[in-house]
Design a binder for these strands. Structure first.
Lengths: 231, 231
DNA sequence: TATAAGTTTTAGCGTCGTCTAATTCGACAC
DNA sequence: GTGTCGAATTAGACGACGCTAAAACTTATA
């Protein structure tokens, strides 16, 4: 397994979680910053090794082996993020890039020691679940995108996508961090969501709001109380 | 700079310290486990980038740029070794392999934070000097190979080469660790050195003794008191 | 249902780092 | 001086991974 293959598997895993299988060639290409032909040829190799199931022109899906490998990389990534924040003083918005490289280069021993020194954390600094040592897919945490909340909802920030550094810094400064409780004060027709946090208000464009996941506050029952789209 | 190039530069740096320039193609090939033609072609690339000076059929020598790069990698390596031992509970004989990989994959930020959390250490767990942030070559530390000591000398273990895991484990168990004071009780004609340590005695074959470096104890003046070989 | 638009794959190529086999070089002995 | 032997380089190949341009497939639409 090369670093590169690990990156493909991780990308497919995340895309499966976001959009469900099958995952398209172009979605992978976009996420990894490669051209579609490059992705096609790597998908052929992954299929040869039976890490994915592939139907030409249709898309791919992780096999059990591929999923296990993807979860191992994801476990590395999130443990490293947690470690950097906890023991080396990184802020939660800085850890992603460092972890993205290191995840491919640590030993099992290192993984064990880092996990132990953190007391086997369940989530990373962005609120994303850390796969366990058994490499089973983490259970659904009941969070949903902020874009599905309705005006008046009081919700707790569960996770913030770690894809974009600048966005993260912005949200950090705005006080929108995992664990904070916010109230939705407005949802504009073009998807802009405004929340009350810390006495102030913050408006988030749809693209950003979609990458913030929330959970109902303890008072609520955890089920969205609006229709979410059709259904 | 690829990982691979960094490995070549580091190897050339170490070989220059051990044997002085010029460094031969085959010495590099041996150290890195590559074939000589492979090394030749990489040396051409390093020379193109002016990281080394090269005379065909003669050997190579680091340029100033190349040396700086080598020292940066070495700084990473030794800082990581120190960090693993100090903060993650690795023993000093286990750290080498992990550091050998990670040294190529950490950011400047990570380097800074690790150095700070260790309070800018001067040596790694094997006793090897850690190049400073200025990337100047470390000054001679006055140590010399144990093979140059004479019977009756009392010396302090200064450094133990980190090349071989098993050798390291053995020396660790024998109590031959940086900082220990030992007395040389015998030097056999074929190079075997026997030292008294901890009330017991340990005999080391020449190959091992050569990779252990010692310094005079405080009582001494730091200058070898025997002729060392010709000179 | 025929065609256009968009996606995916195929074809063909370049670079990097590695190898083996063949050749050339340099140094030392005679 | 010349021959020989070990070290180094050249020649030629390969696998991994990336790209662009062209062809093929899918799907939506008219």
């Amino acid at each position: 397994m090369s670093d590169v293959m690990e990156d493909y598997l991780k990308a497919i895993y995340v895309l499966e979680s976001e959009e469900g299988p099958p995952v398209s060639t172009s979605a992978i290409a976009d996420r990894l910053g490669k051209t579609p032909p490059t992705v096609t040829s790597m998908l052929e190799k992954l299929a040869d090794r039976e890490l994915i199931h592939r139907e030409k022109y249709k898309g791919v899906e992780l096999s059990d082996d591929g999923r296990t490998l993807a979860l191992e990389v994801l476990r590395h990534h999130r443990l490293i993020e947690a470690y950097l924040a906890e023991h080396l003083g990184y802020s939660w918005s800085e850890v992603h890039d460092e972890a993205d490289t290191l995840e491919h280069h640590i030993s099992e021993e290192f993984e064990r020691r880092v996990a132990a020194s953190l007391d086997d954390p369940a989530v990373d600094p962005h609120g994303d679940p850390i796969p366990g040592i058994d490499l089973e897919p983490p259970a659904d945490d009941g969070s949903r995108p902020l874009t599905t909340a309705a005006v008046g909802d009081r919700v707790v920030i569960a996770r913030v996508s770690d894809r974009d550094d600048e966005e993260l810094e912005y949200l950090d400064r705005a006080g929108i961090v995992p664990g904070t409780t916010v109230e939705v004060v407005d949802v504009a027709p073009f998807g802009m969501v405004t929340v009350a946090v810390d006495g102030g208000e913050q408006s988030l464009p749809e693209s950003v709001a979609a990458s913030v996941r929330v959970r109902a506050t303890e008072a609520d029952n955890g089920v969205p109380d609006e229709e979410v789209s059709g259904a």
